[in-house]
Design a protein around this nucleic acid. Structure first.
Lengths: 126, 126
DNA sequence: CCGTATCCCCCATGATACTG
DNA sequence: CAGTATCATGGGGGATACGG
């Protein structure tokens, strides 16, 4: 597989870990794992409403994402939380107040997804 | 959305097109489009067997991809071809000889997908 | 306000058989 | 060798109702 190496350490002292090596099979399997984290009718909508660092309440997301049901919002958030992509905070108040934000790891998805968008933008040039 | 800007023109004279701008909604929609090109039980396996520039016959792919049926291989290849990601050549011989390779645009997927793999590799550090 | 619990349906995939 | 055709299945997602 062609790589984007060499990895330039821009920050002195920041040690980037050595890259994994892949076979066609293992690369496909790992990428399937990535996709399984992101697949789901509403996950990308949720993520793009959280990239940027906002902290959003359940009801905020419900308002911002047109057409989503409470069941689906809760389900997709649970999965994103279980996968370490978003963080959930229950303030334990009555009436309930719960909010969501990206984890550091989840936030790192943003530039990676942007790479896919850039690729899609090249579509016209083919 | 945080960007990987600025875009450095590494090759003098190579004009990179200006980036599209996105809302949360449009970014999610465009990314869904990317995913829909790549979703399918076998597509990533096919792609990683073609990244690298090899030209592979139908039967080559069938041998390399364990467990795939002729129906699914044909179907996924048709979709990748229709989407401009792989190229099909029918040599019009008897017995049939047909081969597949990445298009230039399809090949450009490789570094973008690599970005997702790099993200996945950071998983342990969270 | 922030969720669960049910029921239902559709479509992607698999199995299998057939063909120029 | 390189595909189509047909039938069966199962799980993700929608609609709706209920609960602390």
């Amino acid at each position: 597989m062609t790589r984007t190496h060499p990895q330039v350490s821009t920050l002195p002292g920041l040690q980037l870990p050595p890259r994994k090596t892949y076979t066609a099979l293992s690369a496909a399997i790992d990428l399937e794992a990535v996709f399984s984290l992101l697949e789901g009718r509403w996950k990308l909508l949720i993520l793009f409403n959280l990239f940027g660092g906002q902290v959003q309440r359940f009801s905020d997301l419900e308002k911002r994402i047109d057409g989503i049901s409470q069941k689906m919002l809760a389900q997709q958030l649970r999965q994103l939380e279980a996968d370490g992509i978003v963080e959930r905070t229950d303030h334990g108040e009555v009436p309930p107040r719960v909010d969501y934000r990206m984890t550091a790891w989840g936030q790192a998805l943003c530039p990676a997804l942007d790479g896919l968008l850039q690729w899609m933008e090249q579509c016209g040039q083919r």
